[in-house]
Every structure is written in structure tokens, then in C-alpha cells.
């Protein structure tokens, strides 16, 4: 046995490895067919868009880690609401960037508290609670944002599209954010509590863990990250739109599943989110490069998710 084999074996055990391997393979399969655009450009674009997947993925991951039945379906509606509210309040003025941020976070806080209140007070599964609330949030966003044609503040738009050495600044920030959240997950009482609840909620309660407080915090956090995504996305894409959150329901769950987090709860990792988000975006790029239409793209995205979840298997169903 060589001295290398042990670190290698440990690397092979990492749940997030396969997402990165998949992303790298797809990237390699794409670059020979991208005339005029270098391999670096493809990566830059991938990091740019993956950033938004990762932001919502973090929140969704903590929710899913709470165990069977926990999932946040209100993320797309929350993205739209926070994006619309922030854009309208900032009214394209750089001076109001902070105000917009506070407003977006306020939306997230309200949504998160409302979601958990429904779960607790009506004693309904989180799927149904977040689904019901998403209807209301979506309507609020539509009613509030109707006819919205406001540009984001230039400074904020510039920040979301800035690059350093080809690397999007926002992506760097979110890599740091993911690293921070990884510490939160593994090294704080809150993170340990989330993982413990996901493995066995009753045992967690009997071990003295504050189950209700932890779950409330997690649903609030998921809504906050969705709001952050909405805030940044509206600045990035030149304004809020009513369907801006649409693709993030599948994306938020897909990056968690593909990233090697257990859908049955109690086991999570942050790096996998990045691997999975890059993988998802690069797949789309690859199919575009090959000249395949939207239909094939949808079919393959769906099949990949089903294949990954089938390969990973499930301990218990999510509901």
C-alpha cells in the first residue's frame, strides 16, 4: 500500500466528490465545441449562475436536513417577493441599496416566521404549509410588482456582475458564505441540533435539544437566503420579474440532492452544493452547445435528478 492511498481513500468517501467529478466531465465535454469562447469563459458563466443556485440551496439544505417531511416549497415565491419589494423601494438609487437589503431581509423574516407558524399551529406537514403560503406570497408579489419596470441601482448591478481575474466577485462572496455555513453546520450548537433532529427528532428532544427553536430558525434562514437570492438576482438581471423565482424550486432541491446531502435528513455537506450547481449549469451549457433545444434540456435535467436520487437511495420517504 502506498502512502498516497489513505488520503485518496478518504477523498473517495466524500459525498460531494461525485458532483464535482460530474461538473468537470461535463465541462471537458463542452469546451471542444465552444468556438470563439474559451474554456475559461464557460467556467466564468457557470460560476456566475451557479452562485444563485447555491444561495437558495444552502437554505433548502438546512431544511431538508431536518428530516423526513421537511422541505421549503415557498422559495420561488419568496425570491420573487423580495426581488420586487427591494427593486421598488430602491427605485434605482444607489443611496437606497441598504434600505432595499433590509426590506428584502424583512420579507424573508416574515415569510419564514409565517411558514413555521403554519407548521406548528395547524400541525400540517411542512410541504403543505410552505405550499399554501407560497400561493399567498406569490399573489402579494404579483399585486405589488405589477407593471414593475424599474432598473436596479447601478452600483448594486455593477457589484453583482463584477469580476476579478475572470472570477465573479459574487461567486467569491458566496464561496466564503458556503464555507461559513459549513462551520455553522458542523461546529455550532445550532448546526448540531439540525443534524440531530434530522436523524431522530424524538431522540433529539430527549437529549435536551431545543427542537422547536431550531426548526423555526431553519425555516426563517431558508426564507432569508431565498430573499437574498431575490435581492441579488433582481440586481443582476436588470430588475425584478414575476417569474424570476420559477426555476429555483427544482434547482434548490436538485443541488441539495445531487450534492450528496441525504434527502432522508441528518446528513449534509456544503461543498456538494457548489459541485451540483456547477454541474446543473454546465449540463445546460453543454446541451446548448450541442444545439439541442429546450425540450431535450428539460428531459435530461429531470432524468438526471431521478437517476441521482435512485442511485443514492432513500432511508425514509420525505413525507
Amino acid at each position: 500500500m502506498s502512502a498516497l492511498s489513505r488520503p485518496l481513500a478518504r477523498l473517495l468517501e466524500k459525498p460531494w466528490l461525485w458532483a464535482f467529478v460530474g461538473a468537470a466531465l461535463v465541462w471537458l465535454a463542452t469546451i471542444p465545441f465552444t468556438p470563439g469562447r474559451g474554456a475559461g469563459d464557460v467556467l466564468t458563466a457557470a460560476f456566475t449562475f451557479a452562485t444563485f443556485f447555491v444561495i437558495v440551496g444552502i437554505g433548502q439544505m438546512f431544511v431538508i436536513t431536518l428530516g423526513p417531511g421537511n422541505v421549503d416549497l415557498s422559495i420561488p415565491a419568496t425570491i420573487t417577493l423580495a426581488g420586487s419589494v427591494a427593486t421598488k423601494l430602491m427605485d434605482g438609487q444607489d443611496a437606497l441599496i441598504a434600505l432595499g437589503f433590509v426590506a428584502a431581509m424583512g420579507c424573508g423574516l416574515a415569510v419564514g416566521v409565517f411558514n413555521y407558524a403554519l407548521i406548528r399551529a395547524l400541525r400540517i406537514p411542512p410541504i403543505i404549509a410552505t405550499l399554501s403560503s407560497s400561493f399567498i406570497i406569490q399573489s402579494t408579489a404579483i399585486a405589488y410588482g405589477r407593471g414593475l419596470r424599474i432598473k436596479p441601482p447601478p452600483a448594486l448591478a455593477e457589484f453583482t456582475t463584477a469580476r476579478v481575474l475572470g472570477m465573479p466577485v459574487l461567486a467569491i462572496c458566496v464561496i466564503v458564505l458556503a464555507a461559513l455555513m459549513s462551520v455553522v453546520l458542523h461546529r455550532t450548537i445550532y448546526g448540531r441540533s439540525v443534524i440531530a433532529i434530522g436523524q431522530n427528532q424524538r431522540a433529539a428532544r430527549l437529549a435536551g435539544i431545543a427542537v422547536d427553536r431550531t426548526r423555526l430558525a431553519t425555516y426563517v434562514m431558508s426564507a432569508l437566503f431565498a430573499s437574498l437570492c431575490g435581492y441579488l438576482l433582481s440586481a443582476f438581471s436588470g430588475g425584478a420579474s414575476l417569474n424570476m423565482g420559477e426555476e429555483y424550486l427544482l434547482a434548490s432541491i436538485a443541488v441539495v440532492v445531487i450534492g450528496g446531502t441525504s434527502v432522508a435528513g441528518g446528513f449534509a455537506n456544503l461543498p456538494g452544493l457548489w459541485g451540483a450547481a456547477l454541474f446543473l449549469f454546465l449540463i445546460v451549457t453543454m446541451l446548448n452547445t450541442y444545439g439541442l433545444g429546450a425540450g431535450i434540456r428539460y428531459v435530461l435535467t429531470g432524468l438526471i435528478i431521478i437517476a441521482v436520487i435512485t442511485a443514492a437511495g432513500g432511508r425514509k420517504p420525505l413525507r
Binding site: I189, R192, I195, A196, Q199, N200, R202, A203, A204, L206, A207, G208, I209, S262, G266, F267
Partner: peptide, 26 residues
């Protein structure tokens, strides 16, 4: 509390022995 029904009330099955002990003293 020391659970008797280990599987439903006590053990965190994905964790190490050490983590299963320290969860009571975080």
C-alpha cells in the same frame, strides 16, 4: 435522560460514538 428504547429514543444512527456522547454536553 437515558433512553431504554435505544433505536427510537436514544441513538443518532449516522453519528460516531463520540458525537453521540457529546450531544448531551454541547
Amino acid at each position: 435522560l437515558v433512553a431504554g428504547d435505544r433505536q427510537t429514543d436514544g441513538i443518532f444512527p449516522l453519528w460516531s460514538i463520540a458525537a453521540n456522547i457529546s450531544v448531551g454536553s454541547l
